[in-house]
Structures are given as structure tokens and as C-alpha cells.
Design a protein around this nucleic acid. Structure first.
Lengths: 258, 258
DNA sequence: ATCTGTGAACATGTTCACAGCC
DNA sequence: GGCTGTGAACATGTTCACAGAT
């Protein structure tokens, strides 16, 4: 999606689509580890991860030849390789900006520390929240943002503030040296080259569901395409009949907010 | 991603990638509306949405010919067309299952009602939460799940429970007639054909950021590929040197949890 | 003159099907 | 025999560049 085109020579880049699935495989593998299963076939692991086995094998083949033909993959070894590829063998220091319900949910999220993400700062602009203890951390005032980032070496900022505050705070964390941002605010953040932004947007997810839900009933426009005088164009020679889409089952992977 | 292959005749399906971006365009358009801007060019709207203009035009062309050459798009009309396409001209009834911090954040989220999503039920298994008033709704006991779904005609269920409870609750909502599920629990849900599941997974997002962050420093494996006796294969003739990836700026669109 | 809509070229992602190894 | 790893076929998505409408 962002990867440079025409990669040349040796091409050790892992496709974005694969990177996005590695965490899913990792989770499935951890669950196998808990059940003390030592070896797994691509078929089994794929089922646990909700993908098909060809895709799983192709994905893993981008990391190396870590399986054994006729046997499968050794769970522990694969966990290690994927973790290393994702950079989870080192710790990442995270600051959470905005301590509303969402910020609290994030601060309390277990799968955090367990995956090498250490929350080193909670920040908020609301004086009545500053000082509160949450998951063993004291909430700092947003004025201390740069200080907290510098003191703890924060490299990932999670923005869980209202939309209006997000871009300004993003600019500040980037100026303070943060190069990865996870944005929950419903705005498109702009950042300089070299900074990664990922977006999580609940309302977008719901709208996508609504789109498919509507298809399951009967085509769009049920609620009437009326009341638009103008008769705008009227072209679209191809008929409007969309009919029912085939149903879908697969697990997607897309954007969301809250 | 799930669309059937070899679509034939008339093909009125809108590409998934386009569907995923329509909500983003819609948000940008609403912001233009607030600033009382009546007309917008593909260039301007694309900038506001964080995509390039060719992509925007191609996306909109899937809905119809709603622009005017030499001029641009009429904001209000485009808002209407996209809303209709997404099924936002009708109301969708939502139940939120799990009223922890995340469930509360979702219940209080404004962009909800404003986009045609009506939260008709909050449910939790914890007796100490049942009965609590949140955003004007009284939390119901999870035992009432089927009742709430039937009474209010819920068509979208949001699962914001711990992982262990998610599949069971998913089975129940599906049995009760829900055909769209938004899952925040860190598990792969399996559902019958015809039911849509979307997943939002915070830890996955963080892991993807960590991957890119690691690349910005120097290749993976910094923390050493040691301690794995076995010397497993050792093949991978292509050298391990990944070097620095070019930096990235673009806004992605992917999966997350909390 | 300007800006949309789109065919054609390119790039990425997925699936098939089987060679190759255990 | 069984299962991985992968080339080749297919499908989807993106970008370019320009014809065509206003």
C-alpha cells in the first residue's frame, strides 16, 4: 500500500498484506503453545487464524523456510521467528494521549505488555483527570508531553482524544521525535515523510457493515432517491439493478475508530 | 477480499477497497458542508481525505457520474449519494455487548447516532454493571440478549467483551438473527455463510507499527537470532540484509483491537 | 481552460496445483 | 504419503494520462 514500486535486487521486503496477518498467526500460535502443542500443519494453523492454507504458507515463505515438509511447523520456533520479524523481541515504549473511556480501555489492555509494548505515559488536558492512577500509572498533564516522550524514549504515540485536538497533538509528538502514531480520532492526520500513521475508526467499520447489510436486503436506495430536484445527470446508462450480492463470511481487516 | 470472482453481466458491485474509503470521503464532505462550501474538485476532496485524486475519481465513478466536468462535485449532492450507497439513509439498530471501558467509549461515541446508527441495547454479564445508566440507556443482563435483539430489531452487534466470551456470544447473536458483527475481542470469530464479521484489533495495529518502526532503525533481528540451537535449515540463500526501507507517510487502513 | 471519467499499464495480492523434500 | 514451498494463473487495486464534457 505504501511500499515503493519496482523493488530491485534481493527484495527482502515483506508484503504489507503479509505483515498485517503475521500478528494473527502469532496469536493463534500462542494459543497452541498454551495447549502445549509442539507442531502444527499449515492447514491447522490457517484454520485457527481464519485464512486458507495456501495463503498462510505463502506468507510464511516470505520469512524463510521455517517448516518441515511432510511434518509442519514447530510452534515455538515459528513464534520466535514471527516475533523477531515483527520487532517484538525488543520493547516499544508507548504513550497514550487522551484518557477518556477509550484511553482507559487501552491503558488496561492486557495484550499490551505481553507483546512487548510498554505504556510509559498517560496524558490528558483535563485537570480533573491529571494525577489519577490508572493501571499503575499516574496521568500527566498534556503540557508535559514533550518531557514524557524524551524521558521515556517513547516511539509510539496512541492518540485517543477528540477529533479537534488530534492534529495539534500529532504535530507535537512528531516534533518530539515520535515516528509511529496510532490514531483513534476521526480525522485524517497529516505527518511528514518518515512517520507512520495507522488509523482505527469505529464509525467507518460500522458504515462498511451497513453497506453489506443493505446488500443482503435489496440493493441501495430503498429509502428513496427522491427529493433531489435537479435531476442531476440521470445518465448511468447501465441499469441500477444491483440485485443481491452473494453473502460473505470471511474475516476482513480494515479501518476503525472510537 | 470476499467478492466472488468472475462477476458477470452488468457488474454493479462496488470494489471493497472503494467501499472502505467512502466513509472517509463522507466525513471530509461533512466538514466541507460545515464550512458552507458548495462545490469541491477531486483534487481538493482527495487532499481532505488523504488519498490521491485519481483514486478518488475512480472511486466516485463506481457510484455514478455525479460530478461536472470543468467544475467539480456539488458537496450536498455527493453527501447524499454516498450516504445512500452506504445505506445510511436508513437507521441501523446496534447492540453493544460488554460494557467495560471500551463498551462505554463506544456507547458514548457521537459519530454514532449522527450516522444513522442507533444503539438500542447495552448488555453485560457483570451484575454490578447491570442497571447502570449509560448515555441514556440502562445496561441489561446478558441473559436478555435474545430478547433485546428481537424487541428492537438489532441487525448489528458490537462485541466488546473479553476474548473468552466472544465466540459464544457471537453464536448467540447470530442465532438470534443478527447478520453483521463488529468484533473488538482478540479472537477470530467463526460465523456461518451470510454473516459479516469485521474485526478491530489494537494489538495487531501496534504490531504492524512496530514492524515498520523496526525497519526505520536497522533490519530485524537486532535482538539477536541466537539461542536456537537446532540451526534449523539455515537455508534462505538470499542474504538476510534487509537494510533500511524507504520511509512511509501514507495513511493505511487496517485491523485493530482493544 | 478546466476538471471529470475512464481505458490501459502497472502493482499488489490470492489461489491453484504440483514439484520437491521428509 | 504427507506436507511445505513456490511458479504460474488469476483477481483486485492503483496510477497514469488523456479524451471528452462543460
Amino acid at each position: 500500500m505504501t511500499r515503493r514500486h519496482n523493488r530491485t535486487r534481493g527484495d527482502r521486503g515483506i508484503p504489507e498484506a503479509t505483515v498485517a496477518r503475521l500478528p494473527v498467526y502469532l496469536r493463534a500460535l500462542h494459543s497452541l503453545q498454551e495447549r502445549e502443542i509442539a507442531t502444527v500443519s499449515s492447514e491447522e494453523l490457517a484454520a485457527a487464524a481464519g485464512v486458507n492454507s495456501a495463503k498462510l504458507r505463502k506468507d510464511l515463505s516470505h520469512l524463510g523456510s521455517y517448516g518441515t515438509r511432510g511434518v509442519g511447523y514447530e510452534v515455538e520456533y515459528l513464534v520466535y521467528q514471527i516475533s523477531r520479524e515483527l520487532g517484538l523481541t525488543q520493547d516499544w515504549v508507548v504513550a497514550i494521549i487522551g484518557v477518556g473511556n477509550l484511553g482507559r480501555a487501552l491503558a488496561g489492555y492486557g495484550g499490551f505488555a505481553s507483546r512487548g509494548f510498554r505504556v510509559a505515559g498517560l496524558l490528558d488536558a483535563d485537570e480533573s483527570v491529571v494525577g489519577e492512577q490508572i493501571s499503575g500509572l499516574s496521568v500527566r498533564h498534556i503540557d508535559d508531553l514533550e518531557q514524557v516522550i524524551a524521558d521515556h524514549g517513547v516511539s509510539i504515540a496512541v492518540i485517543a482524544t477528540p477529533a479537534a485536538a488530534a492534529q495539534g497533538l500529532c504535530d507535537r509528538v512528531v516534533a518530539a521525535g515520535v515516528t509511529s502514531v496510532l490514531n483513534f480520532a476521526p480525522v485524517v492526520l497529516s505527518v511528514p515523510e518518515g512517520v507512520d500513521v495507522r488509523k482505527v475508526d469505529l464509525s467507518i467499520e460500522l458504515q462498511i457493515l451497513a453497506f453489506h447489510e443493505q446488500r443482503k436486503a435489496g440493493g441501495p436506495g430503498e429509502a428513496g432517491a427522491e427529493g433531489w430536484g435537479e435531476d442531476h445527470d440521470g445518465d448511468r446508462a447501465d441499469d441500477r439493478a444491483r440485485g443481491q450480492e452473494p453473502p460473505e463470511t470471511t474475516q476482513y481487516v480494515e479501518a476503525v475508530e472510537a
